[in-house]
Design a protein around this nucleic acid. Structure first.
Length: 852
RNA sequence: GCCCCUGUGGCGGAACUGGUAGACGCGCGGGAUUCAAAAUCCCGUUCCUGCAAGGGAGUGUCGGUUCGAUUCCGACUGGGGGCACCA
């Protein structure tokens, strides 16, 4: 028998799909739409296994939904702006555009070999002005709506690269590329007002039922809503007040000092003629933003000498410290410190010998004769703050109240006296979108000495990125371009300078899903089309985007809605986050990492545990090699077998071999029996019984179960069931007319079930069955409900909860009959040891348990 | 420190709303085919005990609820992830 020629087959069917435009999508209000989207790739030049997994998952969903009759939109494109292009361009002396477009060509060719059901006519490339011009307009619209604004803010500044670094690009306080100590620097930057939607972004999370709980929790934490109070403390030296935020207004009577951030206006003001304070502030700013630096930094403060009055008791005066642990970016940049009930405040208080006054005490101590001793001991000795639930003490009008009541009472009193009010705070900050980089979308603003920042008028858009730049400068190449930034002010006509910053590349990915709905429009997209296709029904990608990309997109969609672009506010109705691809690691005797290929055949190799595939550890497998050796279907099957999509997947050569074996096995099964099938569309025979009937039952049960599995994205289970069915059919050897009809039904079912997983093989099998249409156009299988129920069932029999045997009875057999049969079992009689049954539990069609 | 998830054979993983634990695959062992190999196919494979039939144990650990617990409840413990001077 010949062997399955996957190379010829895969090329043939890919050509067929392309020629027939099988996957071209268009709006059709008469059909239910289904929008499947995988996170678009950065065009790095070659696809990796993570892409293969991601796009396989998406393709299975797309093909399955198509078979079920949905009008499917399944597009692909390129997230093409970003720093790697600039770095690569410098390294290889090419242009970022050239490098990017070449990479896109290469990756597209690779993707085409995977047999993915994309509508390639909708392909988009974010670095093309056809795409980015629309986000310049969006930005200007946001500006008009008050959703974008300019503000001075602190950034991580790399003094060598002359650029701003994102937090994740700062490693141990140093720039990830230059290795230089990162500085905090104040820069004027553009911001988008994501905080305006904080409450909505948070509350709507509950409605995202088809999102992983994990991601919703992460976004919830990220938004970080907290309820508390603003409190105004009167200063003793001026009429001004010091405004603070606290979540524990109930502990106000335990206040022992105030702490303000190093960059708080009061501190900066005082530092003007206080050299020591200036030094202290500089020290705080030099403290890296890295987690390690923050964790290990000891609490330190600087006594300003200023004092405030306690809002509930004018006679109490509290000192103001500048403290290194107070953040300017959160709340008001100032706090009141209650050392007894906050660990940070306690650490600080012990160091600077400030009072510790407990104002909440454990429930079981309050009112007993131990109370005073506890309070005294706490004030003197405790080094651990008491932050549990308790009862308010030493707090005048709050005494005796629980935590919740005390908070409410304190806030009420503050409001009544005009000293404060209840308020809500978010951890979420506005989104800084300015980047001092070349390879991004230019921000359409002109800076005029007379008129300030002026939007570029609509008729002068787009502001196109110049191509003739010198990348070998330290800093932003756009800034060094000889002519580009020089222009005239759109308002007054005098000489002015263009903004040379570009957008954060998260900007592009925040709306690309909408552009796909109308990719060739000369507007961003037509609202009618966006409203038809959106939201994305199933979005699939890496969990590393759980917060930023997904939150920005949710915000952006709301902002677009408020600007009249479309009518939806949640972009992704369903989300699936895939796990990583892992592989064993190999280390040579000299400690260097080896690729799997290099490790083969060497005897000095230490095999390490399976870790995420990474270039640095060299434990990568090139998808192209796998597809060339085994075919796309084998690669796809491997991705879907065994591991559920959200878990990490271990890449093993033997596992791929297993998938490869299965592809050949199915093909051989069809080859073997292709002449022992009923004719195409032959009428169902009258009497199907015996083995043929049993086979039919299994076929329909499998179809039913696989459908349910695919609905829940349990691809590994679907694969297992399909394998089970093919195993069964290999043993089904009858060749009479009835058997031939049953076999055809079975084979057609298998082809349809396999198709979303392994589409080339699906087409090949369909073709072998005599079909002239593509299986990609064939409808999904419909299981016959009457074949899903057996007329006999196997029931387990237990004695005292221990399995002792099974009996076969008719379905819904009367209880006493089942009981009699169970008690007649030899193994049961033996296990009962002649003792009488005390109780017999019979669960119909399930189990019998005899208790002796 | 806080929050979330998770623990099943040598391995990846199945097991519907509490009802035959280990589907399916990998690996391993044995066999067939072959001059030999590759490829392919067949049988076995949770552990302990036994020649066998069989018996016993078993879903991280301990306890609880139940006729019956991988599944429900409590405590502990291992692993993974997120956030982190957020007041």
């Amino acid at each position: 028998m010949s062997v399955y020629n996957f190379k010829a087959s895969e090329a043939k069917w890919q050509k067929s799909w392309a020629d027939k435009q099988t996957f071209k999508a268009s709006e059709d209000v008469t059909r239910k739409k289904y929008y499947v989207l995988e996170m678009f790739p950065y065009p790095s030049g070659r696809i990796h296994m993570g892409h293969v997994r991601n796009y396989t998952l998406g393709d299975v969903v797309a093909r399955y939904k198509r078979a079920q009759g949905f009008n499917v939109l399944h597009p692909m494109g390129w997230d093409a702006f970003g720093l790697p292009a600039e770095n690569a361009a410098k390294l290889h002396d090419t242009h970022p555009a050239e490098w990017t477009y070449q990479n896109i060509d290469a990756m597209k060719a690779q993707l085409k070999t995977m047999g993915l059901s994309y509508d390639w006519d909708r392909e988009l490339t974010t670095c093309h002005s056809d795409y980015y011009q629309h986000e310049q307009k969006m930005f200007l619209k946001f500006l008009k709506q008050g959703l974008a604004y300019r503000k001075e803010s602190w950034v991580n500044w790399d003094p060598v690269e002359h650029t701003v670094l994102a937090n994740e690009q700062v490693i141990d306080g140093k720039g990830w590329r230059s290795g230089a100590a990162v500085e905090k620097k104040k820069l004027s930057q553009w911001f988008l007002k994501i905080t305006q939607y904080a409450d909505d972004l948070l509350s709507e999370l509950k409605g995202l039922e088809r999102w992983p709980e994990k991601v919703r929790v992460m976004q919830d934490n990220w938004i970080g809503r907290s309820e508390g109070a603003k409190v105004f403390f009167e200063r003793t030296d001026t009429d001004e007040t010091l405004e603070i935020y606290t979540t524990r207004p109930d502990t106000l009577f335990g206040a022992s000092f105030m702490a303000i951030a190093a960059n708080h206006p009061i501190a900066l003001d005082l530092a003007k003629d206080n050299a020591d304070l200036k030094t202290f502030i500089q020290k705080c700013n030099a403290l890296g933003t890295s987690q390690a630096a923050i964790e290990s930094a000891e609490k330190e403060g600087f006594d300003t000498g200023l004092k405030v009055k306690h809002p509930f008791d004018n006679s109490i005066e509290l000192p103001i410290y500048v403290a290194n642990f107070v953040l300017m970016e959160y709340g008001t940049g100032a706090i009141f410190a209650c050392p007894a009930h906050d660990q940070r405040d306690l650490d600080f208080a012990r160091k600077y010998k400030l009072p510790v006054i407990a104002v909440v005490a454990p429930l079981d101590i309050v009112g007993t004769d131990q109370e005073q001793a506890w309070l005294d001991d706490f004030a003197q000795n405790s080094t651990e703050a008491f932050s549990d639930e308790g009862v308010a003490v030493q707090s005048e009008f709050l005494n005796g109240l629980g935590l919740k009541e005390a908070k409410a009472a304190a806030i009420a009193k503050l409001a009544e006296q005009g000293h404060g009010e209840g308020t809500v705070q978010y951890r979420l900050r506005d989104w800084g979108i300015s980047r001092q980089r070349y390879w991004g979308c230019p921000i359409p603003i002109v800076h005029c000495d007379h008129c300030g920042p002026v939007p570029v008028p609509e008729d002068q858009l787009p502001v196109v990125l110049p191509e003739d730049v010198d990348l070998n400068v330290t800093g932003n190449p756009l800034d060094f371009h000889p002519t580009w930034k020089h222009t005239t002010c759109p308002t007054c006509g005098k000489d002015a300078l263009r903004e040379t910053d570009t957008f954060d590349t998260f900007f592009e990915s925040s709306w690309y899903f909408a552009r796909y709905t109308d990719p060739s429009s000369d507007q961003a997209f037509e609202a009618k089309k966006a409203n038809y296709w959106l939201p994305v029904d199933q979005y699939i990608g890496g969990v590393e985007h759980a917060v930023l990309h997904l939150l920005y997109s949710r915000f952006f969609t709301r902002a677009l809605k408020d600007c009249g672009y479309l009518d939806v506010k949640e972009p992704f109705a369903g989300l699936m986050t895939q796990g990583m691809i892992c592989h064993e690691t190999y280390k040579a005797a000299d400690g260097s990492w080896l690729t799997p290929g290099e490790a083969e055949g060497r005897d000095d190799v230490t095999i390490g545990r399976s870790e995420k595939m990474s270039k640095s550890k060299k434990n990568v497998v090139d998808p192209e090699r796998i597809i060339n050796t085994y075919g796309a279907d084998t690669a796809r099957l491997f991705m879907l077998s065994d591991s559920p999509p959200d878990r990490d997947l271990d890449w093993t050569d033997s596992g791929v071999e297993g998938s490869w074996r299965y592809v050949g096995r199915v093909w051989r099964l069809f080859e073997t029996f292709k002449n022992k099938l009923a004719a195409l569309k032959a009428a169902q025979p009258e009497n199907i019984d015996g083995e043929a009937l049993a086979i039919r039952g299994r076929v329909h049960k499998t179809a039913h179960a696989v459908t349910q599995d695919l609905d829940k994205f349990h691809f590994n289970k679907a694969v297992a069931r399909i394998r089970e069915l093919t195993n069964t059919l290999e043993d089904f050897k009858l060749t009479d007319d009835v058997a031939q009809w049953v076999r055809r039904e079975a084979f057609e079912t298998i082809a349809v079930l396999i198709n979303p997983l392994m589409p080339h093989l699906g087409e090949e099998l369909w073709n072998m069955l005599g079909h002239t249409q593509l299986i990609a156009e064939a409808p999904w299988v419909q299981a016959d409900p009457s074949l899903l129920i057996d007329d006999t069932v196997t029931i387990a029999v237990q004695v005292n909860g221990k399995m002792r045997g099974t009996i076969d009875v008719a379905k819904d057999c009367p209880k006493d009959e089942v009981e009699a049969q169970a008690l007649a079992l030899d193994t049961v009689i033996q296990a009962m040891q002649a003792k009488p049954a005390r109780k017999i539990i019979v669960v119909p069609n399930r189990i019998v348990n005899v208790v002796v």
